[in-house]
Amino acid sequence: MVSINTVMIILLYGATFSGILALISSGFTLIFGVSRILNFAHGAFFMMGAYIGIYFVQQLNLDPILSSLISIILVGIFSIAAYITIIYPVIKNEVMTIIVTLALALLIEQVILLTYGEFGLSYPRLVAGTLTIGDVVIPMVRLTILAISILTILGLWIFIDRTRIGKEINAASQDPEGAILIGLNVNKIYAITIFVSAVLAALSGILYSQMYAANPFQILNSLILAFSIVILGGLGSVKGSIISSFIVGFIYIAVTTLIGARWSEFIALAIIIVILIVKPTGLFGVEE
């Protein structure tokens, strides 16, 4: 018999876990949807956000919030630099785009491993304490992170839907050649998109290491998680990614509490593969 408490745990912890997933995967989907770049370095931007922030807090004794902001901007700038130097030259070549971004991700992973080691590192908490909802205790930091995730995703939606640059991005994503014809600078749009996507990644990295810990292995782990979510949601659909983040997040926590932690990844992956067999384009994807 599943108790009310268990249900509450699944709902509360599932929602907060899903929020982080949505942040990670929406950035990955955004850059793909706009530019058709499969950015395998997304997970690296994610962890860079955490490690750079930790560096500023620990080495320069800066305030955690200020450090986070600096870190997010630095990762954004880094992503543009990476776009110009290594992605742009091979952008026409699907295979090479995957390979250079993957190589960049692994390069960053190795540098982190050599400088910070294999064990996790904690990001100083922005919020402390716990809250009791019903009978279930939940750390404040989780709820804060859920709130930040929701606000950020709303912000992203307003940016794309309401701002001029957002509309240009939207236009470029739907018809790159048409966008060039009406005089849009597609290259600039791609650079801005990768900046936004990297900023989302860095932010989610910082939030992630608040809740869990920064760890070099998360570069590939988060990437695989993002892949699963994006496949489930449909490639290129930001809406699909956000919805499937919540599906995966709830499945994960439900399996952890009801069946056992060791099964959570296995079952989440298996469900995604089954869905893929039934509907190969994912829940919201369209056939190319």
Binding site: L223, I224, F227, I231, L235, L276, P280
Partner: peptide, 8 residues
Amino acid sequence: YFALVTAI
């Protein structure tokens, strides 16, 4: 899709 699925 092929790249992503074979990756996981």
